[in-house]
Each structure stands twice: as structure tokens, then as C-alpha cells.
């Protein structure tokens, strides 16, 4: 019977290694999943790629699980998500590919067709406007305006100084209001 190849290579049996606390990992993923998924989408990760981005976050979380203190799980997950989204954005730019229209939410059930179409139009405009913000401003903006984080929570989640959060939020809001007015004034989704 062959030994496990990793044991062969390392000279140490695998059983001597520190085990990752899989139960804790699963608990964190389960508890933070909705916030993670929405945050990745709101940062512009296309729906076709968001599951893969989630996997990347989970891998980082698993590797560094021992460093994640109780109570700081969400912060770790979201700050990791920000870096993953940032990496994906660079890749997309390099490949010069156009992805799906992000944040195109399915129309809410119960809406009449006209209202559903209007909701879709606004969602597309929202995606357009958010895409024009830098990722740094966008992250702070969406956590505050769409996820209802407090500024202190954002500072903790993204590991930023409070002053930086305040500054980015102010600039993000100003830019968003300007862009939103222009988008609604000019109207159409290309």
C-alpha cells in the first residue's frame, strides 16, 4: 500500500498536521454567505463568476481560520471578498471582456409587467452608475447605502481607519448623486 504522497514528500504523516476546524468554517460560511454574495455582486462581480469568487473567499478563510477571532468573521470575509473582487476586476480589464449586466435583479414577484420593466430599468441604471465608482468608493458606498452598515461597521469590515471610511463615503455619495441624476436625466441603458 502506498503511503499518502504528501507524507512521502514531507516525511511527516498527514495526521500530525493541524486540522482545519471544518465545522467552524461551515458555520461562518453559512452565517456570512448572504452578505458575502451580495457584497461581491454589488462590487461588480458578474453573476456568472460570483460562485467562483465565493470559493476563493472560502479558500482564504479556511487557510487563515485560526487567525479569525470570534466576532470578526464578517470583517474577515468581507475584506477578503473585496480583495478577490479587486483581483477579478483587474482580470476582466485585462481580458477586455464584457460581462453580464450586474445587479440586474429579477423583477419582484407580484409586480405588474410595467412596474417590473421599470424596476429592471432602474436596476440596470444602478449597475451603470456603480460601475463608474472606483472599487474603494463603491465598497464603502454599497455597504452603507444598500447593506445598512454603520460607518463603524464598515471601518471594521474593511479594516479601514474611520476617517478613511468617512471620506470615501462622502466622495462616493457625491459621485453617486451626480451620476444618478445624470443617468435618470439622460435615461437609457446602452
Amino acid at each position: 500500500m502506498l503511503e499518502h504522497p504528501l507524507a512521502l514528500a514531507s516525511g511527516a504523516p498527514a495526521s500530525s498536521l493541524a486540522r482545519v476546524d471544518e465545522a467552524r468554517l461551515r458555520r461562518i460560511v453559512s452565517a456570512q454567505f448572504d452578505a458575502l454574495w451580495r457584497f461581491l455582486r454589488r462590487l461588480g462581480v458578474p453573476e456568472s463568476d460570483v460562485d467562483d469568487a465565493v470559493q476563493e473567499v472560502i479558500l482564504v478563510l479556511a487557510r487563515r481560520l485560526d487567525e479569525v477571532r470570534d466576532g470578526s468573521e464578517r470583517s474577515f470575509v468581507l475584506s477578503t471578498a473585496f480583495r478577490v473582487a479587486s483581483g477579478m476586476r483587474r482580470q476582466v480589464k485585462r481580458r477586455r471582456e464584457v460581462h453580464d449586466a450586474p445587479l440586474l435583479e429579477r423583477a419582484s414577484p407580484g409586480l405588474d409587467p410595467e412596474a417590473a420593466a421599470e424596476q429592471q430599468r432602474l436596476a440596470a441604471l444602478l449597475a451603470q452608475v456603480l460601475d463608474q465608482l472606483s472599487l474603494e468608493l463603491r465598497a464603502v458606498f454599497v455597504l452603507y447605502e444598500l447593506e445598512d452598515f454603520t460607518m463603524a461597521e464598515i471601518a471594521s469590515a474593511l479594516a479601514l481607519p474611520a476617517g478613511t471610511v468617512a471620506s470615501r463615503l462622502r466622495r462616493g455619495r457625491e459621485a453617486f448623486e451626480r451620476l444618478a441624476a445624470r443617468a435618470l436625466g439622460e435615461g437609457e441603458v446602452p
Binding site: R38, R41, R42, L103, E105, S108, Q119, L122, A123, L125, L126, V129, E145, L146, A180, A183, L184
Partner: peptide
């Protein structure tokens, strides 16, 4: 108006 359409 835009943010109201941001539910995911």
C-alpha cells in the same frame, strides 16, 4: 430612485 432598485 436608483437605490430603491438595488435589492438583491
Amino acid at each position: 430612485a436608483l437605490l430603491s432598485a438595488g435589492k438583491l
